[in-house]
């Protein structure tokens, strides 16, 4: 059954894909970086407005598959108003999740909503989709303007 592919296409993912959060540009962004996956053509721009070390505002624009778009949307929703260091913490947790063994237990508390990406563990080719926006954000904090996940 097509509708049975819940392992990957969790309702939360479908919902964020359909109605992405913070899907807009920030004109006076302090950081702006493009994330591009040449293999599948996913292409996002991440915008960040900083207040000291706090992420005052964060948004994204661009195109990609449901997994990459939902991940970008969740990222912006989870990081707005949080310290910069939180981005690295969550990215590490997401990365550890999607690259772990499909049978490993999921730390639901630490991951929060990011646990919806546990299905990606079954589909290694989609890891880049789930992490594209996060790679771009990490690059933005490193002062880069472009990142490719090839």
């Amino acid at each position: 059954m097509i509708t049975g592919n819940r392992a990957l296409y969790e309702q939360v993912i479908l919902e964020h894909n359909k109605t992405p959060r913070n899907f807009r540009e920030i004109e006076d962004a302090d950081r702006k970086v493009e994330g591009y996956n040449p293999l599948c053509g996913d292409h996002f721009t991440i915008f960040v407005k900083l207040d000291g070390d706090t992420i005052a505002d964060i948004s994204f624009s661009g195109k990609g598959c449901a997994i990459s778009k939902a991940s970008a949307s969740l990222m912006t929703a989870m990081l707005k108003g949080k310290p910069k260091s939180e981005a690295e913490t969550l990215f590490n947790r997401l990365h550890d999740l999607v690259t772990s063994n499909p049978d490993d237990p999921v730390d639901e508390k630490a991951l929060g909503k990011l646990q919806v990406f546990s299905g990606v563990r079954e589909y290694p080719v989609r890891i880049k989709c789930a992490t594209l926006a996060w790679h771009a954000l990490a690059a933005a904090f490193e002062g880069k303007e472009e990142v490719s996940t090839e």
């Binding site: 059954m1 097509i2 592919n5 296409y9 599948c40 990609g64 598959c65 449901a66 778009k69 989609r126």
Partner: peptide, 13 residues
């Protein structure tokens, strides 16, 4: 719908 999502779901069939 992104082609990769289509391909992934068709693979289920």
């Amino acid at each position: 719908v992104h082609p990769h999502d289509i391909g992934q779901l068709l693979n289920e069939e």
